[in-house]
Amino acid sequence: MEEGKEKEMSFLGHIFELRGHMIRSVIAIFVGAILCGIFWETINNQFIMAPLSSDFFTYQMLNSLAESIGIDPIYSKSFDYSKELKNLIPAGQITAQIFAILVCGLILAIPYVVYEIWKFIRPGLSENERKHTNGAVAGITFFFLTGVLFSYFFMLPFSIQFLFSYNPFSISNEWTLSSYTRLFIQTLLGMGIVFLFPVFAYFLAKIGILTPQFLTTYRKHALVVILVIAAVITPSDVMSMMIATIPLLILYEFSVYITKYVYNKQLKSEARDLIKK
């Protein structure tokens, strides 16, 4: 009876329902932001500013790898670029801190936000669709956080090191606080979103919009699109684009495999239905 009421809900009822999910999602983000604000010093030193220092995990790992194969350390000099950041706007530090806290709050709250979105769209799905998409929340959360972590430990430190050390005009590279926070947020959220492509491919394949034939036919065109996406979500230097392009190509091939799996499963289901008839 309750399911029937959900299906017969008016358009205005859906709007009110959506509003409730959005309000709860915003509250979850603000709760996450408050937690980030409470632990701001730790988050700032150990998370936001950490990739600017030679003590960062990625730099140390690469140096250890170089030593293990008998070559000189890749990053031989000690550095801390955070000491070189400048603030040129009176309210720049306040704005940067609030923005960073909100984004960190979103990252913390993303599983719950995805859950609220799923609760909104779930009543509109058939029983069979619900059964095949029960792992949607876990899948979206996994791919998003994997993208964030990949960006944080690989793309971001390589971009920082390359852009700070690249000096063709023999002048010092001086960054502002706002430019670094924009780079930080752009790369983390950008990669988190594009890592969701396999999830989108799965859902589009389930409703018949995307097929494996389409993805394989336009594979060369997809490479151009991937390069454009890599340029948008990175600082547009060659190093960052190369690092971003590799996982995006892997995700594209993984999406081809997913659509093939869904497509073949649908063909088998249709064949069983024909046999029953």
Rank of each mutant, 00 (worst) to 15 (best):
Y115E: 08
R130F: 03
F144N: 04
C104E: 11
K83Q: 12
G139C: 08
P123W: 00
A136E: 05
Q93A: 12
L125I: 06
C104S: 14
P111K: 10
N128S: 14
F79I: 09
P111D: 09
Q93I: 12
E116V: 03
L149F: 14
K131G: 01
R130P: 04
C104K: 10
K83T: 11
I89K: 13
L88Q: 06
N128E: 15
E116N: 10
I140N: 01
E67V: 03
Y75Q: 11
A136M: 15
L88S: 07
F120E: 05
A138I: 13
G92A: 13
I121P: 04
I89L: 10
R122D: 10
Q93R: 14
E129S: 08
I98V: 15
I89D: 13
P123V: 01
I121D: 03
I89N: 13
F120S: 06
I117K: 01
G135Q: 12
L145M: 15
A109P: 10
Y112E: 07
I121K: 04
Q93G: 09
I121A: 06
W118C: 05
I71M: 07
L149H: 02
L149G: 08
G135D: 13
L156S: 02
L85Y: 07
Y115I: 02
T146H: 00
G105Q: 10
R122N: 09
A100H: 01
A136I: 14
Q93E: 15
K119P: 00
F144H: 03
P90S: 12
V148P: 01
L106C: 15
T133N: 15
A136V: 13
W118D: 09
I101G: 05
K86M: 11
A138N: 07
I110C: 12
V148D: 00
K131R: 14
E129A: 14
L149M: 15
Q97D: 05
A136L: 15
S126D: 13
Q93P: 00
I140P: 02
S76P: 02
P73Y: 07
G147D: 11
F120P: 05
L85C: 08
A91Y: 12
I69K: 09
F142P: 01
